[in-house]
């Protein structure tokens, strides 16, 4: 990494950590303005990462999106870019308490991964427009599902306290209402599902354009099967919420459980080196 990229990357990580600390102080009953500081730090952290990746792009002459660190950074930046305006627009900024700590952990992991594998970059042949669109929309979809999961987790936490008739405590005192959370979750689920569908469509175009890279049985690759399963799952949830009144704790639980399972399966596939098309004869 260049000096500028390293500096901006480090700053981005520090700002994400600061956002998490501030969010926890807010959750512990700190002044209300802390949540604005947290939102600002998340936005600034994303800015730092954008500068870092921009500097790397200029140095590598290729957009850096193939290492674990690059993937995580893209996820963090897109999540922050959606979360900050979305939470403010829906007046649910208190949910930064849930978003910021997760993004901070991911930032630390990304920093660690960047330290150990900073030099790798995408092979030139993969850098096509359909692939960029496929990867970009996939990250967007995952960021939207991640935020929907955050809404779901907050919903479950709050609903469980209300069910038990337990005092709300400081954090939940500052949380949005269950209906606001349910509505935000529903919207994010819809947007995520649409983005994921777009990602799959862009992936299809990429397959047609570079079929020789992926092999004849690309559609049997575990990550493709997982993507189909995920899309069907989320479309089903969205449809059930829209048409048959699946809402409240059940919907929240399914979103949290579903997204966590998909994430876990991706991690297992990566750890087992199965997240490629080579498994079925592809070259990548």
């Amino acid at each position: 990494m260049t000096a500028l990229a390293t500096l901006a990357f480090g700053l981005g990580t520090l700002l994400n950590l600061a956002a998490a600390i501030v969010a926890m102080l807010f959750a512990a009953g700190g002044p209300r303005r802390l949540i604005d500081v947290c939102g600002g730090a998340l936005a600034a952290g994303a800015g730092g990462y954008i500068v870092a990746q921009g500097a790397r792009w200029a140095a590598l002459e290729a957009f850096p999106l193939t290492t674990l660190a690059d993937g995580l950074v893209a996820f963090i930046v897109i999540s922050a870019a959606i979360a900050v305006p979305f939470l403010y627009r829906h007046r649910i900024a208190g949910l930064f308490c849930f978003v910021a700590p997760v993004l901070a952990v991911l930032s630390v992991v990304a920093s660690g991964a960047a330290l150990y594998g900073a030099s790798s970059q995408a092979p030139g042949r993969l850098l096509t427009v359909p692939l960029a669109l496929h990867a970009g929309t996939a990250f967007l979809a995952y960021a939207l599902f991640f935020l929907a999961t955050v809404m779901g987790a907050a919903y479950l936490l709050m609903a469980s306290r209300l069910k038990r008739q337990a005092p709300k405590g400081r954090l939940l005192q500052r949380m949005p209402s269950l209906e606001q959370l349910d509505y935000a979750l529903y919207r994010l689920l819809g947007l995520g599902t649409a983005a994921f569908l777009l990602a799959m469509a862009a992936g299809g175009i990429w397959v047609i354009a570079q079929r020789e890279l992926l092999g004849p049985n690309w559609w049997l690759a575990p990550k493709v099967l997982l993507a189909w399963a995920a899309e069907i799952f989320f479309v089903a949830l969205y449809g059930l919420r829209t048409f048959s009144g699946l809402r409240g704790p059940k919907l929240a639980g399914l979103v949290v459980g579903g997204f966590s399972s998909i994430l876990l399966l991706y991690i297992v596939l990566s750890a087992a080196q199965l997240r490629t098309y080579q498994f079925w004869g592809g070259q990548v």
Binding site: G29, P167, R170, P176, L178
Partner: peptide, 23 residues
């Protein structure tokens, strides 16, 4: 400070819970 947060009468707690559910 959080001194003004949280309702302290039975009826206002009930309203506070209603707001927590419905906004």
């Amino acid at each position: 400070t959080a001194i003004g947060e949280g309702k302290v009468s039975v009826s206002s707690v009930a309203v506070d819970l209603a707001v927590s559910i419905f906004g």
